[in-house]
Design a protein around this nucleic acid. Structure first.
Lengths: 108, 108
DNA sequence: GTATGTACCTTGTTATGCAAGATACTGTGT
DNA sequence: ACACAGTATCTTGCATAACAAGGTACATAC
């Protein structure tokens, strides 16, 4: 899988999954991995960034299966960001696709 | 426009435009800019990379409007790359979109 | 001769993802 | 008691690609 494609996109994926349900980091890796390869070395720094920017809050919860889990919950600002990023993603892919099919050329 | 989204994608855009017609660098900026913001500082290093990797060949042609133009032509390998990258892009966006609409969740 | 448009290129900065590793808790097998 | 696998967190150093800002040079118009 092309690593470059993921740049900036994993952030929307995380926000989008969190918009559906609160998750802990390890769980997010599992959820997103169903569709896109993602590693832990990516998700944890990304989650820290989202917290620093105020898009998520966290809380700890004990687990019977291992160490405590750090859950992530979207803030209002996070929901807004999720919505805006998604719209931007849609606009962007539409623009790219129109280039890829050569729509902008006259005799095509 | 989110710069990160473009990572790796501009390469397909360039290959895709070149698959339709041979262009010089400045012209590629103009063509792609119809859909996506792109600057010259991006296109020239990208074109050099494509040449180094054997995806394009170049030839000079004089212009009456300014300095000589360096045209880029896809090689066979370049056509193959264009096709494969495009397929990968389609698979990737489909995967992302399925995450964004929450298709992978049961009760949704 | 100065400005504008065309056309090429390079350097340094920035952002993000990843591999590889470290840490630590729980349960299972020997 | 000990090792191992699974769960769960985090950090460090590297690679990549886009961009801003600049430089060079040709042609034309004023």
């Amino acid at each position: 899988m092309n690593i470059q494609f993921k740049k900036g996109v994993l952030e929307i994926c995380v926000l989008s999954v969190l918009a559906y349900k609160e998750c802990y980091g390890y769980e997010l890796v599992y959820e997103i991995s169903k569709q896109i390869d993602i590693s832990e070395g990516t998700i944890y720094p990304l989650l820290r960034r989202l917290k620093d920017e105020g898009f998520v809050t966290t809380y700890l919860q004990e687990s019977v299966e291992g160490p405590p889990r750090k859950y992530y919950r979207l803030t209002e600002s996070g929901r807004k960001e999720e919505h805006e990023l998604k719209e931007e993603w849609m606009r962007f892919t539409a623009a790219v696709n129109s280039l890829l099919v050569g729509k902008n050329h006259a005799a095509e």
